[in-house]
Design a protein around this nucleic acid. Structure first.
Length: 286
DNA sequence: TCACATACCTGTTCGC
DNA sequence: TGCGAACAGGTATGTG
C-alpha cells in the first residue's frame, strides 16, 4: 500500500531522525529481505560503521547515501516497502514486533527497525562507485517523477498513447507514471472523470490534460496529510496518515458518490480492485 | 517491445 | 457458527 505520498512521508521523517546518525551494526531476522547477490553477512559488514547522510526517493524506492567519516562515500542503502513495510525509529529496547525483519542499531540506544508483515519488502546495499539509479532495476526503468519539470502534458500523452491497455492498469505501471498505487490511481481517475476501463490510447486530449493536472495535486494533498489512513501504513514515528476520510472512491463501494450520490462501484481490473462512480466516470465511446 | 499471467506472502473478510 | 476461499496489492519474472 505505501505509494508515493506514503514513501515521501517516510523519507521526510527519516531525514529528521537519521541525519548524521552512525549505524553501529544490525540484525537481519529474515534473510530474504536483503536483495541478492549480497549475503546477509556482506550487507551487515558493509553498512556497519557508516553514517546516514541523506535519504532520497525515486518513485516508491528510498535510497540513503552512506558515508564513512566526514566525506568518504560508503555506498548506498536502498529500501522498498512494497506492500506492508514500515521503517520505524525506536528505542532499541522497544518490544520486538512479530514481523520485525531487519534492525539497524544506531548510537544512543536508537534503532531503525524494518517491520514487514507480508515480507515483500527489500533492502539493498550498493558500493560507493555504483549509481543507485542504474543498479536497482526498478529505479532504472522508472517513469518521470510527477513533481518534476519533465512531467509535461506531452510526456504523459506519449506514455498513454502507446499503451493498448486499460488506463487503470497503465496508471499502476511504474514505467509509465511513477508513484501511483491502487488508492491514488482510483482517486486520480475520479477527479479526471475517466472510466477505469478506458484504453489509455483512446483518451481524449482534454482527459489527458486533466490527468496531468490532477496527478500531482492528489499526491501533494496526500503528502500534506501525512499519507493514507488505509491499511497498516505508519510513518517513522509510528503514526498513521490522514488521507482516507477525504477519499472520493477508494474503499467506498456502495457508498454514495460525494458529487452526485450514485453508489460507488467496484470492478476487477488487471487483478486489482477499482472503485469508481458509474455516473461521473462514463465511457466516452468505443 | 509489449501485454498478460503468475509468484511472492500473511492477516482479514467473505460466502456458504 | 465454522471453515475454506477469496481478497488485499507492488514488483520481478517468465511466456507468447
Amino acid at each position: 500500500v505505501p505509494e508515493l505520498p506514503e514513501v515521501e512521508t517516510v523519507r521526510r521523517g527519516l531525514n529528521q531522525v537519521t541525519s548524521a546518525q552512525k549505524i553501529k551494526g544490525g540484525d537481519v531476522l529474515l534473510p530474504r529481505t536483503i536483495a541478492h547477490p549480497l549475503s546477509v553477512e556482506e550487507f551487515l559488514t558493509n553498512i556497519s560503521g557508516t553514517q546516514i547522510a541523506n535519504w532520497q526517493r525515486y518513485g516508491k524506492y528510498l535510497v540513503a547515501e552512506l558515508q564513512r567519516d566526514k566525506s568518504t562515500p560508503a555506498g548506498w542503502l536502498g529500501v522498498h516497502l512494497r506492500m506492508t513495510g514500515q521503517l520505524l525509529w525506536l528505542d532499541t529496547h522497544t518490544e520486538l514486533h512479530k514481523h520485525t525483519r531487519v534492525r539497524l542499531f544506531m548510537e544512543g540506544d536508537r534503532e531503525l527497525r524494518f517491520v514487514d508483515q507480508r515480507t515483500f519488502g527489500k533492502m539493498w546495499w550498493l558500493p560507493p562507485e555504483s549509481n543507485p539509479q542504474e543498479s536497482i532495476s526498478g529505479i532504472k526503468t522508472l517513469a518521470k517523477e510527477p513533481f518534476s519539470a519533465d512531467f509535461t502534458v506531452e510526456y504523459l500523452t506519449k506514455q498513454l498513447k502507446r499503451r493498448h491497455r486499460q488506463i487503470k492498469t497503465v496508471l499502476l505501471d511504474q514505467t509509465a507514471i511513477a508513484g501511483l498505487g491502487n488508492i491514488y490511481a482510483d482517486e486520480v481517475l475520479f477527479l479526471s472523470g475517466i472510466h477505469p476501463e478506458t484504453l489509455a490510447k483512446d483518451l481524449e486530449d482534454g482527459q489527458i490534460a486533466q490527468l496531468h493536472q490532477v496527478i500531482p495535486e492528489v499526491l501533494e494533498k496526500a503528502i500534506a496529510n501525512g499519507g493514507t489512513t488505509f491499511s497498516n501504513f505508519l510513518n517513522v514515528q509510528g503514526v498513521n496518515g490522514n488521507y482516507g476520510g477525504m477519499a472520493w472512491t477508494y474503499n467506498r463501494t456502495g457508498q454514495p458518490c460525494k458529487v452526485c450520490g450514485t453508489p460507488i462501484e467496484k470492478l476487477k481490473i488487471g487483478g486489482r480492485s477499482s472503485h469508481f462512480c458509474p455516473n461521473c466516470q462514463q465511457r466516452r465511446s468505443l
